[in-house]
Write a protein that binds this DNA or RNA. Structure first.
Lengths: 135, 135
DNA sequence: TAAAAATCTACTGATATGGTAGGTTTTTAT
DNA sequence: ATAAAAACCTACCATATCAGTAGATTTTTA
């Protein structure tokens, strides 16, 4: 299951993608439109900014805006920032790999092989879809 | 990510499937072979028994045994028992459906549509594979 | 100079995770 | 009959994560 943080982040970005080319968008506008706690959303957008997906402007007339075209932002990349690993086991994660300490030999592990297959099928969807597909 | 409980459960069942037709298998044998905390594994096997996947026999010469052929036990079914929902959002879960309280209309939600696609791709793998494929 | 807006730091309550401890019941072998 | 073996049951615990809240600070604009 995705955390609410991830879900909120994706919904907020979709909202922003729909209104791109307009002036910066207020946190509070997004929070209200998407039924997200405003303070919680603050933290989420900040994280997305710190990871290069959003820009911001302070003061009156300020807000957040996308710094890339929606077509260029894959959903997989966003989930990795907001949620962490997409894979079902640490030992099959491409971006957050970790050895399972109970498993002596990964190449012999049948669970590993199965989860690689699941991962590849999931990524096929999440890497091919972009923010533009969510608009 | 799958919990350790789920991972341990799947590994334990795979171990048992490899030794099926032998006498009942001891918790402690599985725990040692698969590097799982013995007490933790007790709880996991008990749950699998209570859900009809395992039988048990008490006393000397006792232990746990599979009550179905490995070919008949889909990995998806096991994950649903051990982990819960396979879907990434409650609103797209087939077996654990829940409405998102922030979402006014599911049919209009683009995140919902995307996550249905992810779910279907995941299930395509997990429902077609059985314990026999993990041996 | 005041208001608006993002930013930062810290805290909180609830829940899940990954166990551990220790006793009880059932069964089998001696 | 009895002791050992094994599953079973109940309770507890430490830690981490989740989902949020509170409140002050900085920057920008009108």
């Amino acid at each position: 299951m995705l955390s609410k943080k991830t879900k909120y982040g994706l919904k907020a970005l979709t909202y922003m993608a729909r209104k791109k080319d307009e002036a910066p968008i207020l946190i509070s506008e997004i929070a209200e439109a998407e039924n997200i706690s405003r303070k919680f959303l603050e933290l989420i957008l900040l994280q997305l900014k710190n990871n290069g997906f959003l820009g911001s402007k302070k003061g009156k007339g300020g807000g957040y805006y996308l710094v890339q075209e929606p077509e260029m932002i894959s959903i997989a990349a966003l989930i990795r920032i907001l949620e962490g690993p997409i894979a079902l086991l640490p030992c099959v994660s491409l971006n957050f790999y970790e050895k399972c300490d109970d498993c002596p030999d990964e190449t012999q592990c049948s669970l590993n092989r199965l989860m690689v297959e699941v991962r590849d099928n999931t990524l096929k969807v999440l890497e091919s879809k972009t923010l533009a597909d969510l608009i």
